[in-house]
Structures are given as structure tokens and as C-alpha cells.
Design a protein around this nucleic acid. Structure first.
Lengths: 247, 247
DNA sequence: CGGAATGTTGAACCGTTTCAAACGGAGTGG
DNA sequence: CCACTCCGTTTGAAACGGTTCAACATTCCG
């Protein structure tokens, strides 16, 4: 697997750089963190509600989602996780997990012990600062998620979700025909957006009919970025990206 | 106003203590922070989407809410703020605000400059740690809020909101008849829960009929805490309170 | 190849919204 | 003190968006 060995931590550095300016020394120190990497197959739990952890899981490749359960057992996906994100950063500060994280695709995860990370943060406070920023960006995303579910109808809601996901994956070069893989069943999309799979199906169909998206298996293509953004009322500011890239 | 002068910062210490264990030295240092206190009347903005700040606002008394706007101008309340909370802590780490904070009642707010707070955090890292914990608790609340709006029907959703608010205000001694003031119009409750004021009205009426709550003007009484908790499927774990108080 | 999971479609249903009208209380000015 | 207005609450009837259920088609995967 790791024959050409690229250090998986580069994806962490890349992700953190989206929200903060990292010094060269910080980057170097981050890349020297000890880790052990492992592959999880689709559907594995990376974190369970109630877990207590002594290491952090960095998502190196693949997509995972964070979800919570109702008293009735209904599921609500509350966040998506993409490569470069530390999936259980909260457990570095707060003891007990309050949600589940489950892989949607096969995922490579690098484990970093809390003690190593704590030591690094103590030595280089700017890295601690950067990690806090990434947590605050997650907070901002969660609040936008509330707005999305609370105050947008199904069609706009799905459009907004697709925009956000495309944007976070970096597939948002304006005007161009952008495609990405959306590794979610319609059931999962429903759980993310507070809708039923059936209704997701109908709305996706309508979005295709109206030329806002194209579909092939699990792939989504956005033929005209601007029109989907308009449909969704999407404004990327809440993502707190450091470089101002259009929109 | 401040003739008997109680330091408003004690409420900050109290709030932080709910989630973390603070040393005596930390408490003392916190209380020595320089601040300037001011009263805002109901409806004032404490923070606006897009603001950049060089000081933090500590809510000393009163209730505020955080909200975001749709592209259509529809409002969604994404969080409630109660005394002891720093309403714009994010701006200490992230430059630009992504939501509005508006007072619901007359509020006393103590301003603390970023530089003073940064200096304190540098001197006493455990205080920085505690502030991060409080931000992560807010993240946990936001995720539960998503679950509440996405996967609970109106009746349960309102019940859950009332439970959470009561619990955060500390009015949750089990079994007893607990009352608190809920300083929100039905319109605002609707904005918080992704419902219309009309439907809030009908559901509140039903909750009263079913003996789960009692109402008087803006006051809410919970005659039987346990039955409302059952109705809401409420589990306080996501609030991450340090002392384990029932439920 | 066969079975399970996912996607698709229609019809009936229901929770919530919308619209509209009336009510009540608090505050203001004459 | 009354009349007036403003704001929030209350109520009803009709409409709508999304759900539910059920059947069938398709894809995935061992």
C-alpha cells in the first residue's frame, strides 16, 4: 500500500492552510508527528457516541459523515468529513463523544496520539491556534446546516448541500463544468437534509430536468456552477476560507 | 447601577466551571481581567454578520440569540446565549463573523479586549483550554440543534427546546415544579425551530392541554420535569456538564 | 446467477403553512 | 379615562410540501 510513501499528514497541513496561515516551521513540525495509518472499509465507525479517546483520527482519504440518533432511532447526519480533517478533535478537549462518525467510502485514517499532539501544541502554540480555528469553522458549518434545514425548502436545501460539498472539495472553479463523486445513497442524503429518500429522489430528478445538475451513478456534475449557486442562495463566506476564491 | 459592585466576570467563571475544572489561580486571573460594562436594550445587535472585532462581549445578564438569514431574508435562530457566555468568542480566532447576535431582553454586556484576553491565555494556557472547551460545547449544541430541526416533529421539537433551555438555565431539579421566563415571542420561537409562529401557537396550546407545560405571559412552568423530558426524548449529555446532575 | 441494497414512480395521506380575521394587552396622546 | 394604535396571540379554513406505503426496476456484489 505505502510503497511510494507519501506522508499522509500533508493532507492535514493542506486542510489547516485553508483557514489559517501556517509558518514553515509549523508545517515541518506537523509533518513530524508520529502516526499509524489504517484503512477502514465503507460503513465503519470511526467514532461512537459515548466514546472516550486517547488518540485523534485524521481522515487521509475517503468521505465520512457525522450523525446523531433520535430517541425514536431516526438518524440525522450533522456534518460531512473530507480528507485532511481530524474527525475526533473534540475529544482532545472534551472527554466524551456526542455523535457518531461513520465512513461512507473506504477511508484511510492516520491515528495520532493525544499526548504527541498535546506536546506539539505546547511547543508551538500557533498550531494549537490553528486547530482551534478548524473547530470554529466546523461550528460555523453546523450553524449554516441549521439554517439550511430550518429555512430552505427541499429543492434549495439539496442545491445548497451540493454547493457546499463541491466547494469544500475544491471543485468550484467558476463557470466551468465541474464533476465530483458524491458517495451517498439517497437515503443518506435524506438523513443529512432532514428529508425522506423518496423526496430526495424526486427533487434530484427535477434538478436534472432543470439542467442544474447531471447524474451518473454516484457522480454529480455541475454544468453551470453559477446557476446552482443562484438556485441555492449559496454564499461561501461561512466556510472561512483564507484565500478569496470567487463566489 | 454598580453601587454594590459585584464583578460581572464572576458569571464567566461560573459558566466555564460548568464544563471544565478551573484552578483557583485561573479563577483569580479571570476576575482580574479589565472590562467595561454596558447595558443594551432588548433588540440590540451585539454582533453582526460580517463584523470584525477587537474585543469580546461577555453576556452578564439577559438573554440573546444568534441568527442567520436566508437568501430570501427568512431568519433562522441557530443558538441561544445566556449569562456567562462570550457571545463573539469566535472572533478571537477567526476574523469575520458569520452570524448575528441580538438581545432578546435588556442585557448587560462586559467588553473585554482581545489583547487582554490573549495575554491572559498566553500566561495561563489552562484558561485558553477552557475557552476552547466552551466553544466545543457550542458545537455540540449546534449539532443537537440540527437533529432537533431535522428529525423531530413540531411537538417534540418544542419540548426539546424547552428542556434544553431549562437545563442550561439550571432549572432542572428533577421532579419539582420548575418555572422560568422564556423571553421569546412565538414568532422568535418559530425562527428558532424552523416553524411558523402560528404552528408554535397551536403546539404550545396542546402542550398546555396535555399538562406538560404551563404558561403565563412570557413565563413557562414545567409541572413535571420527567414527563417533558420523556416527551422530548431529551438527554442532557450533549451539554457536556461537568457535574452529573440527574437525567 | 441470485439476492440484497438502492433507485424510481404513483396515489393517498398528513403535518405544517398560508391567509385572513379577530382578540388582547401595553403604551400613548388627547 | 377613553380612544387609538401597535404588537403579539389566537383561531379557522384551505392549500401545499413532504411523507408514507407499496410496487417495481435497477445496480451492486458475493
Amino acid at each position: 500500500m505505502n510503497t511510494v510513501t507519501i506522508n499522509p499528514l500533508v493532507c492535514l497541513v493542506g486542510k489547516l492552510s485553508l483557514h489559517s496561515v501556517l509558518s514553515l516551521e509549523d508545517r515541518v513540525s506537523l509533518l513530524q508527528l508520529p502516526y499509524s495509518s489504517r484503512i477502514f472499509e465503507a460503513g465503519s465507525f470511526l467514532l461512537r457516541d459515548g466514546d472516550v479517546r486517547d488518540d485523534c483520527g485524521l481522515l487521509v482519504s475517503g468521505i465520512a459523515c457525522r450523525h446523531k440518533l433520535n430517541a425514536d432511532g431516526q438518524r440525522q447526519i450533522v456534518a460531512m468529513h473530507i480528507p485532511g480533517e481530524i474527525v475526533d478533535l473534540q475529544q482532545l478537549y472534551v472527554d466524551i463523544a456526542d455523535s457518531n462518525v461513520q465512513t461512507l467510502t473506504s477511508c484511510e485514517v492516520a491515528k495520532i496520539s493525544h499526548s504527541a499532539l498535546r506536546q506539539l501544541i505546547a511547543e508551538r502554540p500557533s498550531i494549537g491556534h490553528t486547530l482551534v480555528v478548524s473547530a470554529l469553522v466546523e461550528l460555523s458549518l453546523a450553524r449554516e446546516w441549521v439554517l439550511n434545514i430550518g429555512r430552505r425548502d427541499a429543492r434549495t436545501r439539496i442545491s445548497h448541500f451540493l454547493c457546499e460539498f463541491a466547494f469544500r472539495l475544491g471543485r468550484h472553479e467558476s463557470e466551468s463544468v465541474e464533476a465530483y463523486e458524491l458517495p451517498m445513497t439517497q437515503e443518506q442524503l435524506g438523513d443529512a437534509l432532514g428529508l425522506t429518500a423518496v423526496h430526495i429522489n424526486r427533487m434530484l430528478k427535477r434538478l436534472v430536468e432543470d439542467g442544474l445538475i447531471e447524474r451518473s451513478k454516484r457522480g454529480i456534475t455541475i454544468p453551470n456552477w453559477k446557476s446552482l449557486v443562484r438556485e441555492a442562495g449559496f454564499n461561501s463566506r461561512y466556510l472561512h476560507l483564507v484565500p478569496d476564491l470567487g463566489v
